[in-house]
């Protein structure tokens, strides 16, 4: 059984891994032959850059992670409040949804400079933009989750004379979790993106500002190193929730948590 799962995992992992490795090898060869523009360094140079500027990268990545996590947490708290209102007071559902769409359709890259004028370019800005960037996905997951209790289960708890608290803890929350997690998984990379955009507008430390410095000092390997770092942050955020979901929601049918 466990062995089967291991082979299944291996067969799921190796084709993309092999494709990726082949792509890197091709890039390396193309670069050596001089076929690539000078803005695209060979992969080996990017890997080497991790060695020489690794400490520098850590210095800049750390506040970015902090801003992303803080922005995500604030967004989740605010979204939980709105979703609870939207779910328990039916007429508020529409306006809450509209608010989510409004926030989501605001082009961050255009609004961030305006925000700079209000709150300056520091850590606060990064946190706020990260929060705004992931708000909609989190809100949608929670709103859908709070409505996920099916009518029969509701009737079952009524016949069992369950209290409000028992309903919340034993029915509403577990029913909501798959949807909440689906929202979180989509939201995590978006929060990373929000932090990055905010850091472009101005920061003393942050992977975004490091990227800008590297661009202006024309250091392609370092630019690419920051790009890879941002990708890893995004994938890391997603994976964190994916792993937590597997651990806590093993029961959930894969279809159930779809948004």
């Amino acid at each position: 059984m466990d062995r089967d799962r291991l082979t299944a995992l291996a067969s799921a992992v190796w084709p993309p891994a092999a494709t990726f490795a082949a792509l890197l090898a091709m890039l390396e060869i193309a670069s050596g032959a001089g076929w690539l523009p000078i803005t695209v360094p060979p992969p080996s140079a990017v890997i080497a850059e991790f060695g020489t500027s690794g400490a520098d990268l850590l210095y800049h990545v750390w506040p970015s992670i902090l801003a992303t996590v803080a922005g995500f947490a604030i967004s989740a708290l605010v979204a939980a409040g709105f979703a609870a209102v939207g779910a328990s007071w039916r007429r508020a559902g529409g306006p809450v949804f509209t608010l989510g769409v409004l926030v989501d359709s605001t082009p961050l890259i255009a609004v961030a400079p305006i925000l700079v004028a209000f709150i300056g370019g520091g850590m606060t800005l990064h946190v706020v933009v990260a929060a705004v960037a992931c708000f909609f996905s989190i809100l949608m997951g929670m709103m859908k989750g709070f409505r996920a209790v099916d009518r029969n289960s509701d009737e079952l708890f009524h016949v069992l004379a369950a209290s409000r608290w028992q309903r919340l803890v034993k029915l509403a929350l577990p029913s909501a979790l798959p949807f909440v997690f689906a929202g979180f998984k989509i939201a995590a990379p978006l929060a990373v993106l929000g932090t990055l955009i905010a850091e472009w507008m101005g920061a003393e430390r942050g992977v975004g500002i490091m990227m800008i410095y590297a661009m202006f000092s024309f250091d392609p390997p370092q630019v690419w190193m920051t790009i890879v770092a941002v990708c890893l942050m995004a994938i890391g955020g997603y994976s964190l929730f994916a792993v937590a979901e597997r651990a806590f929601l093993g029961w959930a049918d894969r279809d159930e948590g779809r948004l």
């Binding site: 708890f157 369950a162 034993k170 029915l171 577990p174």
Partner: peptide
């Protein structure tokens, strides 16, 4: 009910125990 209406996150034992927890 016509549909079994079991809580999917609970095992058989935990589903049968649900009314006891509530009462």
């Amino acid at each position: 009910f016509q549909a079994a209406t079991l809580l999917p996150w609970r095992t058989v034992r935990e589903n049968v125990r649900l009314p006891l927890e509530i009462a």
